[in-house]
Computed example of a mutant assay.
Amino acid sequence: MNIKTLKIFCDLAELKSFTRTARLHQISQSAVSQHLHSLERALGLILIERDKKNFNLTPAGKKILEYASQIVKLHEQLVSAAAEMTNTVAGTIKVSAIYSLGLHFLPPILKTFMQQNPTVFVHVLYSTASEVYNAVLTHSVDLGLVAYPEHNPLLKVIKIAEERMVVICHAHHPFSQRQSLSIKDLQDQKFIGFEEKVPTQIAIERVLRKFNVRVNKVMEFDNVETIKCAVEIEAGIAIVPETTVTQEVARGTLKAIPLIEPEMYRPVGVIYRRDKVVTPAMEAFLQALMKKTN
């Protein structure tokens, strides 16, 4: 029995998935099973009911989870205290980010941070907004990166940036010749959006309603990469963060036109649990993220 095995058990209990737990720890599903079997053998207890349809902790598993969670948290505190004593910035940081931030906003920050802190390993997971919140709340990750951060009494929220939103279209679309657009110019246009529950789409819909603009929504997706692909095949136009289309604009496969009436900016925030032990490595990473606003 070791700390890693206890941490894997805690994550497995929270995520209720061998696949997601394996992805989080960057190991195979069979390795997750081996850790679980090892813990069960060491304790002489069955911790998880073997049912292919459902995932449930046994009564013993629920009790062991309470102790295991405490031990894992104490271990984090110990590592943090030792690092502070030696002024060492080292360790692993687990970050869950929505796709657009993880693929476009985070990489340049991460590159600089890793160059300055070579003894810190940052593990990034790409997720939907709801998955990011869940991962942070269940202690599965240390930090979350989201757009339009929501208030939650259990979470600390730090605003780190605002991303300008632009209209994107194919190079052959009439909008491609425009220098700017009003939201009213989008009336009756074929529109490709995010899924309804995505915070960015909620904000877009709010602006459309405010200006009494109707679009013809022909497709919706849960991530910006698929939206861009749909616009590239001339399925319609879309509103996305400007940072997500710099490569396509440079290649000439998409045109990005600023919205000026009204201007739209997407707030970006980092979230973590208020009761989270902030290690020196986490503090250094938070500082790197907050420099984005300067």
Results as ranks from 00 to 15, higher is better:
P149Q: 04
F121K: 11
V245A: 07
N87Q: 13
I158H: 09
T5C: 04
A147Y: 15
K255S: 13
K292N: 08
G61C: 03
T138F: 00
P59C: 05
A42S: 08
F194R: 04
V141S: 05
E232H: 05
A129F: 00
A31W: 04
C229Y: 12
S180N: 13
T200V: 09
C169S: 14
I168Q: 10
T88P: 02
L101H: 09
A230L: 04
Q201T: 01
G91R: 02
Y99F: 05
Q70R: 12
D11G: 11
R20I: 03
P241M: 05
A171G: 03
K62P: 10
V136Y: 07
F191G: 00
M219D: 11
V79S: 14
R274T: 10
S17G: 05
F221V: 01
L155Y: 07
I3M: 09
H170V: 01
Q177P: 10
L101D: 04
R20H: 11
M114V: 02
F285S: 06
R41T: 02
K94N: 05
Q287S: 11
C229E: 13
L208C: 01
A83Y: 01
G193C: 08
V278G: 02
N87Y: 12
P241I: 01
M85C: 13
K228H: 13
V120N: 01
L155N: 01
L78I: 06
T21C: 11
R20T: 01
A83R: 03
I233D: 03
E261D: 11
S33Q: 14
L186Q: 01
R274P: 00
P258Y: 08
Q201H: 12
L154M: 07
K53E: 13
A68S: 08
L15M: 10
K62T: 10
E234I: 06
L43T: 05
N117V: 00
I204T: 09
P258T: 02
H104C: 12
E225P: 08
M165Y: 04
Q189G: 01
V207G: 05
V268C: 07
H35D: 06
S33P: 00
S96Y: 00
R214K: 09
A60K: 11
E163W: 09
R41Y: 04
E242R: 13
K63N: 12
M219N: 09
D11A: 14
V224H: 13
V32P: 06
I233N: 10
K292A: 15
L143Y: 07
A60R: 11
V268W: 00
L65D: 03
S130C: 03
K16C: 12
E40W: 08
R214C: 00
P149W: 03
K4Q: 14
Q77C: 05
K62G: 15
K217T: 07
K159A: 11
